[in-house]
Write a protein that binds this DNA or RNA. Structure first.
Lengths: 335, 335
DNA sequence: TTGTAAGCGTTATCAC
DNA sequence: GTGATAACGCTTACAA
């Protein structure tokens, strides 16, 4: 077993033709001119099948100077929003004859290592989602000429295609909607701490309060949206407040769903007593009771994002573009 | 921009040394013998930094005949169980100096293409989760000598390391537990249709009923565990039955959680009126109300699985091994 | 229509 | 210690 894999040489030998002929048969020659005789073609194909020959990608890539692979770099797993993205990207990639690989960054250090690998021709281009890599580190990429599409709202260096969301506006819309319903005590459960960047969702919240003529109440702001448990705990605290919040805006759907349980278990009605809005539009939110009102992508069609990458792969000289992925308020039962 | 990447040749030229010297500095030579002068070393390193040189992986792999990459092939995204697996594998891989890439199969056709890529040296080895690839197709792998670890319970060809779960026993345990509580009308919501393989979870259910002296009732078996919505619909139907089921076993936690909502909305108590057990032990189940009792991996430590792959990577001549990943009943509030 | 040969960027085996 | 040099497996001008 484990004898080394067959090469074009083996195929050529078995078929009784030259190396070049094998390659021609397998790739179809580029110049319109030459054609391979049907008989030769047959022979080669038979030899390929018999040996179970598969071309060595490393060698092909080295020669062709491209991998025909793209990489999606994700900050973490288990986010439905990312999963949808990956699916669309993969489909588009396939249409272009590209393979897609997913790299899960996790830590900053690991993200760095992945980007390094990409620079070493792990892939011809990449889609970086929410990356924590600094502008400085990204600059070396623009020099190496490897196409990158970056999905984040802040601190993106020049020279890249960027995909932004208008989540600030969408969150503003959500809070305004609550205010129009007559809600006056709107709590905000966010992801604080992890970020020192401007926090769009919080900014949208504050602005909507201001524009709605509602005083900002510090007690109604808290972290914990990152975990279901923390969310539940914080909300229990809020429910004992006087006056009790009549609406809760959580910056993740997971937290929001956990909050629905908590509020219902406290004997309160959703949305009559407490309206609840989440962020992200995860599928889980469609089957809660009541179904979760949420802020999220208006469509989960990421094909346009993928196209951004492939258009640049086709023509590296394009100028940097910015694409806005529309977010909106998705009204369901919980608010 | 986009001028082609610097090579060892460029580095050597700038540093005023030969190609080999650059390589020695970068990789540290294998034979204990020769050493590089500190001065030369410095020069080379400086040149590397100045040019922003990164070694071309394709070339390295071609030369070394290995990629130092492994691939995890997943049937689909969005399954917490898989996410945990990927994290552990990635950590172990890192300790061995390997990069991990994730490929998401989705369709059968795509899975085939991914395996083909692996055979073409996309990676040195792979972990196939729940793959639908037939035994026949896998056989060509064992010939090519690429280490594979296969995680599935059935129809695995000889010559591979296999990871199985004892989910049949664990499901048997869950149903027996319900019977011991005095439940007599235990419904089964499964994933039917997609599978023509023996269905472990259902077998465990049937066997527990038999051993518990309970007649099998066809009306209490249904598909729909794959979707939250279908689960809810089917359960609504069950709740109108006479006698009403006093327990529901769903073969996915997502379905089970959806069922908790449904049962509670129907004005029934969980677990007093209806006990509910899921499968998979997803994190979401810890924060439902009541928390979800479920059947799942006793530990979500997959490091041992990863080690299986790396031990084989180190020594291809090992004989095929089977590893059982223990599943168990995790008792929480819903049953 | 097919064969020859050069080279993609590395690494490793030799001499020096 | 360091420098030529020969592979690794494949593609593709160019020659036959």
């Amino acid at each position: 077993m484990s004898r080394s894999a067959p090469t074009t040489r083996d195929v050529a030998q078995l078929a009784g033709v030259s190396l070049a002929t094998v390659s021609y048969v397998l790739n179809g020659r580029r110049d319109g001119g030459g054609k391979i005789g049907e008989a030769t073609r047959e022979k080669v194909l038979r030899a390929v099948a018999e040996l179970g020959y598969v071309p060595n990608q490393s060698a092909r890539h080295l020669r062709r100077q491209k991998t025909e692979r793209i990489c999606v770099v994700l900050p973490n797993l288990g986010v439905p929003y990312f999963d949808a993205l990956v699916q669309d990207v993969q489909n588009v990639a396939e249409e272009h004859g590209y393979t897609t690989i997913i790299a899960y960054a996790g830590t900053f250090e690991r993200e760095r290592r992945i980007l390094e690998q990409i620079q070493c021709h792990l892939a011809d281009g990449a889609l970086i989602v929410d990356g924590r890599t600094t502008e400085k580190d990204l600059v070396s990429f623009v020099n190496s000429g490897i196409p990158l599409v970056i999905m984040r709202n802040h601190t993106v260096p020049e020279g890249f295609d960027v995909v932004e969301t208008n989540e600030r506006e969408a969150c503003y819309e959500a809070i305004s909607y609550l205010i129009r319903q007559g809600r006056r005590h709107i709590a905000f459960l966010g992801h604080f701490g992890a970020m020192n960047e401007p926090y769009d969702r919080f900014i949208g919240y504050q602005q909507a309060l201001r524009d709605g003529g509602i005083a900002f109440d510090e007690r109604l702001v808290s972290g914990g949206a990152g975990s279901r448990k923390a969310a539940s705990l914080n909300v229990q605290r809020w429910l004992n407040l006087d006056p009790r919040p009549d609406a809760i805006f959580a910056t993740s759907d997971k937290a929001a769903i956990s909050i629905i349980w908590t509020v219902r278990d406290a004997g309160l009605r959703v949305p009559e007593d407490v309206a609840i809005i989440g962020v992200g539009n995860i599928p889980e939110g469609e089957s809660t009771s009541p179904p979760l009102t949420t802020v999220g992508p208006a469509s989960s069609d990421f094909r346009a994002v993928a196209q951004l990458l492939f258009s640049r792969l086709a023509d590296g000289e394009l100028e940097a573009r910015t694409f806005v992925h529309e977010w909106t308020l998705i009204r369901r039962g919980s608010a």
